[in-house]
Nucleic acid binder design. Structure first.
Lengths: 99, 99
DNA sequence: TTTTCATATTGACATTTATCTATTTGTGGG
DNA sequence: CCCACAAATAGATAAATGTCAATATGAAAA
């Protein structure tokens, strides 16, 4: 996963509503109308958020008749976790021999 | 870690420059002047990014004379990873009994 | 085919954000 | 005390973002 991909995912998660959407999807696939019930936002706004989540690969959309069902993309989620796992936090000091 | 805390961290990571800063700090503590060398941005802009990273708890600042040394906060990073770990991606379908 | 319903797109607007220049703050050395 | 330097803050501005009302699309039902 590239920095740009990761930044896109972070940006997508950096909104309280979208974070809540991801949490809801974490419980299993949901259609847009069910998701909408959980929020105080308009239908176009939810649709816009879903587009953001889909475009970064975190969420997949499945069309079934009139309804669109959304679910988390486990593969992307795993890759993102691996990306974050690449950050270490060495406790030793003096890493910067500044002056 | 609350949703708001996590959203703050995500927002902080949702910028290519800040992601790069975190990667640099992942290699150990660095002072602001060393970080600045790695970018094509002005000193105030870097300072602004560091403030964002510090305010979400991902980075700690340590003052030493005229210099400020920054490092990743391992605790926050761990909490954030745990937060993301809370998202499951159940593969079973039919989670939404929509219609 | 006409209607109805679920979702997506458009266009507009207010807010937030990333960035810069200019200035200020704080620290240490002459 | 004054100067030099590292970093932070202030103020301004262009770009991105979240939101909504209005409209379009697309699919099933009547």
């Amino acid at each position: 996963m590239s920095d740009m991909d990761a930044a896109l995912i972070c940006k997508a998660l950096g909104d309280a509503n979208r974070l809540k959407i991801v949490r809801l999807l974490s419980g299993g696939e949901k259609c847009a109308c069910k998701l909408l019930e959980a929020f105080d936002i308009s239908q176009p706004t939810l649709s816009h958020h879903m587009k953001t989540l889909c475009e970064c690969g975190l969420v997949c959309a499945r069309r079934e008749g009139k309804w669109t069902h959304y679910s988390l993309c486990g593969e992307t989620l795993a890759e993102f976790r691996a990306f974050l796992g690449g950050f270490d936090y060495p406790t030793q000091e003096g890493g910067c021999s500044c002056h």
